[in-house]
C-alpha cells in the first residue's frame, strides 16, 4: 500500500535587506511543521539571528506552527536577535491575538517594515 501523502510545506528563503526572510508556502500543521522547524534551525545554526518570517503564502497555521515560531523567536532572542513576522491575513492575526502572541511578536504588514523593525533600512 502506498504511503500517505500530504502536500509538503515548502519554505522559500530570500533576503530582506541584510536579513534572511523565510516564506512558508502551504499549510503548517502537525504533519508538516518539521519543514518549518528545519528551515528555521538551519538559519539559526548558521548564525543568522535576525530573521523575517513572511506568512503571505500560508493557507493554514495551527498550534504546532505557533509553537515552532515561538521557540525559534526565543532562540533568536537568546542570541541577541529577533524573529519578526509579516502577516496581513485576518485569520492568522486572530490566532496570534487569541493566544496573546501578538503581544510577543513584532508583526508587520510588509517585509520592508519587518526589515526596519530588525534595525535595517527605514520602512
Amino acid at each position: 500500500m502506498p504511503t500517505d501523502s500530504t502536500p509538503p510545506l515548502r519554505v522559500e528563503i530570500s533576503t530582506v535587506g541584510a536579513f534572511p526572510c523565510l516564506r512558508p508556502l502551504g499549510e503548517v500543521d502537525i504533519a508538516s511543521v518539521a519543514a518549518l522547524q528545519e528551515a528555521l534551525s538551519a538559519q539559526l545554526d548558521g548564525g543568522q539571528t535576525r530573521l523575517v518570517m513572511d506568512f503571505g503564502g500560508l493557507s493554514y497555521l495551527d498550534s504546532t506552527g505557533l509553537g515552532c515560531i515561538t521557540a525559534a523567536r526565543r532562540r533568536a532572542r537568546d542570541a541577541g536577535g529577533d524573529l519578526v513576522l509579516v502577516c496581513t491575513q485576518s485569520r492568522i492575526l486572530r490566532l496570534l491575538s487569541i493566544t496573546g502572541l501578538n503581544q510577543v511578536f513584532t508583526i508587520c504588514k510588509t517585509t520592508a517594515a519587518a526589515e526596519a523593525a530588525l534595525g535595517g533600512a527605514k520602512a
Binding site: 495551527d62 498550534s63 504546532t64 505557533l66 509553537g67 515561538t70 490566532l95 487569541i98 493566544t99
Partner: peptide, 12 residues
C-alpha cells in the same frame, strides 16, 4: 505550551 495554545484556539 502547544497543548495550551490548542485549548485556547478551540475555546475561541
Amino acid at each position: 505550551e502547544e497543548a495550551a495554545i490548542a485549548q485556547l484556539v478551540m475555546a475561541e
